[in-house]
Amino acid sequence: MVHPERFAALFNLSHPGHFISWGVLQVSYGNAVVIVLMVVAFVAALLLPFPGHRDKGGR
């Protein structure tokens, strides 16, 4: 017998969402978090030194 509650999510996101409105722009918190994380990941990927290859210049 499978008990559904055993698989319940830790945080319940099934409640009405929140939205950021800025002029014509409207974005849900959920989407905003994803988009911000994408930009952060992109910038981090460009800036963080890649391991195994020490920056020789040391600038």
Partner: peptide
């Protein structure tokens, strides 16, 4: 099914990770 819902969640989040990685 609780298990089914969890598997559905893994499908959803795989897709979110997929697009996340693909766009970057």
């Amino acid at each position: 099914s609780g298990l089914g819902h969890y598997i559905n969640s893994t499908h959803l989040w795989s897709v979110e990770v997929f697009f996340f990685a693909m766009v970057i």
